[in-house]
Design a protein around this nucleic acid. Structure first.
Lengths: 207, 207, 207, 207
DNA sequence: AATGAATGAGCCTTCATTCAT
DNA sequence: AATGAATGAAGGCTCATTCAT
């Protein structure tokens, strides 16, 4: 067992341990020892690889963001129409990978911490922008510009709100219920904005 | 310098100081000294009146809840129709009293802390139930039961989501924009669910 | 109800409260508030009457000492012979007034505290001297001088030792058992030192 | 400055420091900083190795107990007769190792603290039982059962009482004097219970 | 690559004591 | 006579971080 090339493994293990520790505690108030313990290493090693706690937390957040982004890419690639693109983005946020107690708690904790940390705030802005543009990649074909923008904003808020509510009630709403709420909004929005036939034609064209 | 009957004054001052400290820090990671300092007293006095940090935090949360409740009562009393009741509840959440950086940050911080603290969780559940029933006091007259329930859920999620987003971007959306998004959702929902004439008649009757 | 003449009542109440508080806690680590609370007054009043905690503790110790002394005087007055004087002194130390959990705990606590506090140490020395001379007032008539001195020392040690042991085991030995042990020692001591007939004659003469 | 395998050394140093700190202060009211300082380390390290003050105190008590036990084992192994066993147990309690101001003060402090702490109380019970059985290992051959039991109880009380008295008077009685008192009691007890010849024969047989 | 050893800084909390009323 | 108000000081404990090995 050569001891070389451990770095990426340790980094990964530590980041996973961070997510799970935050998930378990429900806040960023986790100690380096707790994290290191979950990763099966000493806390000194965590410092060795990440320098400071802040950096480990940021790396963890970046990891979460990257995973979400990857999942979203996959889902969008499979979408066949504008309408499906919207649904894809929504679905990803409530997919098994993302909509899990641990991950939700971590997201929430990061949201709050971002009020203190400029670095985390920056990361969350990236996420917000990405989400918006991903939603727009579908909505732009279904609604007029300003309406689409507002719809994207509303959908994003709904997603965040559903996360928060889920975190406080044990598993309510579940993924299916959450998706239903968001999709229902989309349908209502599309329904009042333009006849369905036109919508379908438009979205079909675009894909 | 009156030396008697200080208790209610100090309690109030300490609770206000707690909100402002949390608002400034953006999290519940505020020290008793910081809070006491803002209230102009020693940290020992804060302990004298509240026993422990937890209790001060809970008292603060209860205070926020009570204020929101009071504002909501006022707004609902002035509403003339079912539709107006819905708007009243929405408006209150984004009113000057509530939708302020400090208060928003405090709410958020409490949300996250609630994952750890059963006591806070209980308080937030009360809030969630109240919000739901306040919304239903209007929606029940405008939409069939299950639809109304889901709409209330969605509106609540939207409100929470808009709070979270506001906290991370300096002042975006503002109150007007936030209300517009939620009201737009309500309109969309009502538009697809029933003809306007029926809705108006129903809501008119009820007031 | 005139408010004058309260001082002696309050002092008494506070001293009693101190004994009971120490007894309950099992150590001198009682707060002024605890004591004051038991006496039904504010802690500020305790300071008003005693100045400082130390002084209240000393006053309490003095009170205990005075009571023991009073009881001893009574008992000695009733003794009819040298031998009875010895028994009287022993009996008093295990009488209902003295050999109670609360009082025992207080005595013990004072013993330990005396290692720190010169004032308490002085008080305990007074007690030790008194006990010795009280015992000698009987033993001197029964045993030759140096032997009597040593016996007094041993009896005193036995009494202290039995107190300590009683404090740690719930009520073992009880008063009867404790007295039996000490009296047995006395008998053994007298038995080996001089024939019983001589002893009796001596003690009878002296009373 | 070896940087590895420090744990046992530090633990030992901290326990020794605890005894000496308690001895100096005369009570368990010693701060972790004081103890750590005497051991030449930071108070954080003391917590690192012992978790909490209570545990350090218990460990210290256990250490004292173990040492006493060890000394007693040694002394008993060298005893040639039942009578010598009794003397051995007595002597150990007043040997140079045990009958030192520091150690005595610590014992006393623990005795008092035991009234509050169940854990310490348990430890002291162990000590009491052991002492009793060690004494009985000699007395059983010299006196009839119930008498032997009572004698053991009395000897134990005498020892405790002499400790307490020594703590309050600077060095009086000294070890020799203390031993003389206890041995004198033993002799008196044996003298009144059975003829010396029989006693000698019995104890001689048994060794 | 990895860790045990070690610490400084900081926080919550307690408590005796003082003071104005 | 009595107390509520208020605080300074101190202690236990935690934790991120550093360092030598």
């Amino acid at each position: 067992m050569p001891k070389v090339g451990m770095e990426p493994l340790r980094r990964k293990a530590l980041i996973d341990a961070t997510v799970s520790a935050i998930g378990a505690r429900g806040s960023l108030d986790v100690t380096m020892s707790e994290i290191a313990g979950r990763a099966g290493v000493s806390s000194a090693l965590a410092h060795h690889y990440f320098g400071a706690k802040d950096e480990l937390l940021q790396a963890t957040m970046r990891h979460l963001l990257a995973e979400l982004n990857w999942d979203t890419r996959q889902a969008l690639a499979a979408a066949q129409s504008a309408r499906e693109r919207v649904s894809a983005v929504i679905a990803v946020n409530f997919s098994e990978n993302q909509f899990q107690p641990e991950t939700i708690a971590a997201w929430l904790a990061f949201y709050v911490e971002a009020q203190k940390s400029a670095a985390l705030r920056r990361l969350l802005r990236v996420y917000a922008r990405r989400l918006h543009s991903n939603l727009m990649s579908g909505l732009a074909g279904l609604l007029p510009r300003p309406t689409a923008d507002q719809a994207a904003e509303a959908i994003a808020a709904l997603i965040d709100g559903l996360y928060i509510r889920r975190a406080l009630r044990n598993g309510t709403p579940n993924a299916t219920g959450a998706i239903a709420i968001v999709e229902d909004y989309v349908e209502a929005k599309l329904g009042t904005a333009a006849p369905a036939t036109i919508r379908n034609r438009l979205s079909g064209d675009q894909s």
